[in-house]
Every structure is written in C-alpha cells, then in structure tokens.
Design a protein around this nucleic acid. Structure first.
Ligand SMILES: [Mn+2]
Ligand SMILES: [Mn+2]
Ligand SMILES: [Mn+2]
Ligand SMILES: [Mn+2]
Lengths: 215, 215
DNA sequence: TATTATTTTTAGTTTTGCCTAAATTTTTAG
DNA sequence: CTAAAAATTTAGGCAAAACTAAAAATAATA
C-alpha cells in the first residue's frame, strides 16, 4: 500500500465507525482535504485491490482485509504517540502530526518491538484504544461528561476532539486523563456544568463537556 | 524536500566524500538503482532549488545548503539506527532498511528529542559518526585492519561494508565494535591475517581486513 | 588526430494522485 | 410525482518521478 492508499483506508475506517452502512465520498474528501472526484478515483483502485467494497453511488465499506489493514495503521499511529509522549517527553497536543508520518513506516517487526518497549500499552495519550498485533481492540464503557449523572464521581479517560486547542485548554485547566470529575450542578439554560475536578471547582461549557470522555 | 529529493541529496553527499571534484550521473544512478536519464531530470530540479551546483556533462556538487541538508538526513538515519539497536534490541544488521524510511520523518523537534533520549551518541551501531544538530561531525583516526602494524593492539571501531552478510559474519566470529585486535602474522601470498581478537586466535581473509576499521 | 567507446542529456511515454468542469445519479421538496 | 438540489462520477489534464530510445558531448585509444 502506498502512503496515500493507507491514508484513505484509515479515514474510511474512522468514518465507518460512525456510519457502518457505508461511507460517503464527500465525507472522505472532507477528511483528506481533497476533492470528491479524487476520492472516486481512489475508491476504484482500493476496490480493485479488494480493500473496500464499492459500488458507485452507494458509498463504500471496508473488506475484512481492509479493516485489518486499517487497524494496523491505527495501531502504529497510537503506539508512536505513546512513544513520543512517554519516552521523548512530547506533550499530548504535539504528537498527532508526527504520528501521521510515523504510522506509514513499513516494518511489522519494528512495531511489535516498539509495542514491547512501551510495555504493551492499551491506550494512547488521548485515551484511544490501541489494537494489539492481532487487531483486537480493548473496549471500555466511556461516556461524555455531558451525559453523566449529577453528584457521581467519574474519572477522565479520553477526549473526543483531540485538536491542540482543546488539549491545551485542558492542560490550562489542569484536567488530565485520570482526573476525578464530579458534576455538581447543571445550568439548564445553556447546559454549563459546575464540576469538581480533583479538589478544585470549575465551570465548564457544554462544548467542553461534549468532548471529554469519562467512566 | 520530497523523499525522492532527499534520497538524491544523501547519495550525492556520500559519493562526494569519495569524489569531491564532482559526482557522476552514472554513479548516482547506480546507488539509487535508477537510470541516468532520471538522474539528469532530478539534478535539474535540485539545481533549481539551489541544493546542488550542476552544469551539464560536468558532474554535480552540493551547495552549502545541500551539504547541510544531507548531513541532517544522515543525522536522522544514524540516530534512528542507534534507537533501533539500543532501545528496541534490533541487531546491527537489521536496522539500515528501517532507518532508510525513518530518516525522512520531518520534525526537527523530534530528532533533537530523540538525540537527547539516546544521550547524544557520537557514533551509530556501525561506527559511523552522527552529525550534531549544527551538522558538525566528530572525526576519529581510524584505519583498515589491512593497514595495521604487526603485533600492535588496536580496537575495532567500525565497518566499511555494512551489508547484513558482512555484519552477520562478524557476529558469527564474535567480532564487535570495541573488540581488541592484534595482527600476529601476515601471509604474504594472499594477505590473509592471523589475528588475536580479545583472547581468541583467528585467520582473517584480506577481504574482511579491508572492510573492518580499527584505531 | 581521427575514430570509437562511454557518458550524459534530450525527447517522448507511463503511472500515480491530484485537479476542474461537465455529466449523471440520487435525494429532497414542493 | 415532478423539479430542483445535492452528491457522485466521468472526461480531460497536470505535475512528479520514473522509463526507453535516440541524440549529443566527452573521454579513450589506435
Ligand atoms: Mn493522533
Ligand atoms: Mn491519539
Ligand atoms: Mn544505515
Ligand atoms: Mn549505520
């Protein structure tokens, strides 16, 4: 697979988690910052290689082969992110871009040795699960902060939006994966939350609450 | 710079250490396993970007800019090789191919953090010097085993040929960087050497002696 | 020096991945 | 159910990086 093909497969994977019936051409184009006509061209090629099932106008899904390939790319991406944060002391808002390049390095041996070196982590720095060498993914029951019950203690386990702006906001508010969070009050007018984080009180907008996973 | 451009610059760098007057089109083609006509095309592009000085039929040399770029690619290649051997437990004959890919990862920040993580190594697993962040290279006075004096103790510091066949031969004979080597006798007919390595006696062909650096 | 031989460049194609513009199909609304 | 809107595909092209074949320049040699 070329780097371009890998990027398409990965995007189709991510989109198919949301629309399992079939992924739209325009959605793919949007994620890859390219044009729908280019996507159509690539879908034909991926279909030829039996990485996706594609009938024109009907959207696209991954074949088993494509699904496995996608998970291996995601595995590489997330393991490299762990390496960058845990070993090289990058902060969690700096690693995504670099991992976008590292995920295309070809050696399977490399990624398995990296996995061992990192002690077989199950989650990346953003709380996303890391597929193991067989493509199996550990699921956890997480929910958005906006969906939690009042006065019940949760633990922060991930982010939905992993843009550096959002991650830097969390850093500024000293909210990290592992932080204990309890929603004390919910303002019905705008869904703003009054929360207790570790031992601090904080007011959190609905937008934030919709992008923070807890369990 | 594209990956292809980087590969050309790196090859021109290596060849120009041997032929500083100017590197031949065919020599470049040979190293990159491509055709002379493709090289000519690329030389025009690199010249356009002021990475090389090139006049047709006259061979090519790196500009200061090209020379610095080349050293940064070599720096990345060799640092990644150190990482693979020291941290991921690859053996020294397995790392070159993977480093050929890793050397094209773009972030300067990444490579400087990797450098720090590895404790600023000066030499890679094959004994080749690693340029620092400014492009400076630590030179050592090394010579080939075939050029040594009889009955004088040397230390193995590098390999000229770093093919896996040669490296695996050295592993088999338990010759590693750091090994103490003394040439006891030289057979004048075929230049075969009788050497003492650490505490063992060994007969070594001229071909081997011409590819092992000592100091 | 004149003539080969070798090296290098030019000319013309190919493939990959992308683009714009136009045509087609599907979906949504009236 | 039809007409407009939206989504998707086709057609035709472009740029990068490779190739082959042929031409031109340089180097080697008789
Ligand atoms: Mn990421
Ligand atoms: Mn991540
Ligand atoms: Mn190498
Ligand atoms: Mn090396």
């Amino acid at each position: 697979m070329t780097i371009s093909e890998e990027n398409y497969i990965k995007v189709i994977y991510h989109l198919s988690l949301v629309s399992p019936k079939g992924v739209n051409t325009n959605a793919i184009a949007g994620m890859l910052d390219t044009k729908a006509s280019s996507v159509t061209d690539m879908l034909k090629k991926l279909s030829e290689k039996e990485l996706v099932s594609y009938q024109k106008y009907q959207g696209v899904t991954l074949t088993d082969k494509g699904f496995y390939s996608a998970k291996m790319i995601v595995r590489k991406h997330r393991l490299w992110e762990v390496f960058l944060v845990d070993k090289l002391n990058f902060s969690w808002d700096e690693v995504h871009e670099i991992a976008e390049e590292l995920e295309h390095i070809k050696s399977e041996n490399l990624i398995n040795k990296l996995d061992a070196f990192l002690d077989f982590p199950s989650f990346d720095p953003h709380g996303d699960p890391i597929p193991n060498a067989d493509g199996e993914i550990k699921k956890i029951n997480k929910l958005l902060l906006s969906e939690t019950e009042l006065n019940k203690e949760y633990q922060c386990v991930g982010v939905k939006d992993s843009s550096s702006e959002f991650l830097q906001y969390l850093d500024k508010q000293k909210i990290a994966l592992g932080s204990k969070i309890t929603v004390k009050e919910k303002e019905s007018f705008d869904d703003t939350l009054l929360v207790q984080i570790d031992s601090r009180q904080l007011t959190i907008s609905n937008k934030i609450a919709n992008n923070l996973y807890v369990k």
